[in-house]
Design a protein around this nucleic acid. Structure first.
Length: 227
DNA sequence: GATTGATCATAC
DNA sequence: GTATGATCAATC
C-alpha cells in the first residue's frame, strides 16, 4: 500500500478516523500488509504507528504535531471495557536544563495539547492484540477548566524543576499532569540544571496526562456521565 | 485495582 | 544518544 497523503483538512482527518472505528488491529494491519503482534511487550508503539499510517500522518521522527499543516496531534488511548482509559498518556519530554526559559503560554506541552485527535483502542490485556477494536475518534481541545488545571500543574512542576532541580520530581505531583521517567532504562542520563544553575546528569523525564484526566475529557466530550 | 517508576522498538 | 510511538510490571 502506497503511503497515504496527509489529510487536507481537519474534517477529512476526522472522516478518515471515523472510517477506522470498529475495525480490529489485526484487520487494519493486514490492510498495510503487516501483522499485529501477539502482545505489546516488545512493540509498545505498534498501535500508534499503525494508526499514523492509516490516517496519513507524517513519519514520526520530528518534534512537531503529527499533522503539521493542521496543527493536530494524534494520540491512541487504551480503554477498558467501560471506555475508561487504562493508562496514562505520554505528552512530551522535558528539557531539564531549560525550564526556567519557558512560560506555559509557549511551552511544548501546551502546543501539543492545543488540538488532539484521540483514537480509543480496546486496551484490556485479556483481549488478544489482533482482536482489539478501535473506537469512535474524538477531536479535542482543552476546555477553559481543563486548560486551567493543566496550566496550574505545568507551572508548579516547571517551577519546581527550574528552582530545585529534577531530583525533587516524582510521579505523585500534579492533578492532571505528572512527571515520570521517559527513557530506555534507569541508566539513561541527560544534562540538567540543579537549583543553583549547576549542570549535572539526570534521569530523563516526560510529562504524562493522568488516566483520571483523560477519563474526564472523554466523558465530557461524549456527553457521558463522569462515572 | 490503581499508580509510579522502568522499560521496549524504531528512525536518524 | 535523541526523538518518535507508548505499555509493562513492581509496588502501594
Amino acid at each position: 500500500m502506497a503511503a497515504l497523503e496527509p489529510p487536507g483538512s481537519e474534517q477529512e482527518l476526522y472522516t478518515r478516523a471515523q472510517g477506522l472505528a470498529g475495525a480490529t488491529l489485526g484487520e487494519l494491519a493486514a490492510q498495510l500488509g503487516q501483522r499485529a503482534p501477539a502482545d505489546l511487550r516488545r512493540a509498545k508503539g505498534f498501535t500508534g504507528h499503525l494508526v499514523e499510517q492509516l490516517l496519513g500522518a507524517a513519519a514520526s521522527s520530528r518534534a512537531e504535531p503529527d499533522f503539521p499543516a493542521l496543527g493536530v496531534e494524534l494520540k491512541t488511548l487504551p480503554v477498558g471495557p467501560s471506555g475508561r482509559p487504562v493508562e496514562s498518556t505520554f505528552v512530551c519530554t522535558i528539557d531539564l536544563s531549560a525550564m526556567d526559559r519557558f512560560s506555559y503560554e509557549d511551552c511544548w506541552l501546551r502546543r501539543k495539547l492545543a488540538r488532539v485527535l484521540w483514537i480509543p483502542v480496546e486496551g484490556s490485556r485479556e483481549i488478544p492484540v489482533p482482536a482489539r477494536r478501535l473506537g469512535a475518534p474524538l477531536l479535542w481541545s482543552p476546555s477553559s477548566e481543563e486548560e486551567a488545571v493543566l496550566r496550574a500543574d505545568w507551572e508548579e512542576l516547571a517551577g519546581l524543576i527550574a528552582r530545585g532541580g529534577a531530583e525533587l520530581l516524582h510521579g505523585r505531583l500534579g492533578r492532571a499532569l505528572q512527571v515520570r521517567p521517559k527513557a530506555a532504562g534507569s541508566w539513561s542520563r541527560r544534562r540538567a540544571l540543579d537549583g543553583d544553575g549547576v549542570s549535572y546528569l539526570a534521569l530523563p523525564r516526560g510529562f504524562y496526562l493522568r488516566a483520571s484526566f483523560t477519563a474526564q475529557l472523554v466523558c465530557r466530550s461524549y456527553a457521558l456521565p463522569t462515572r
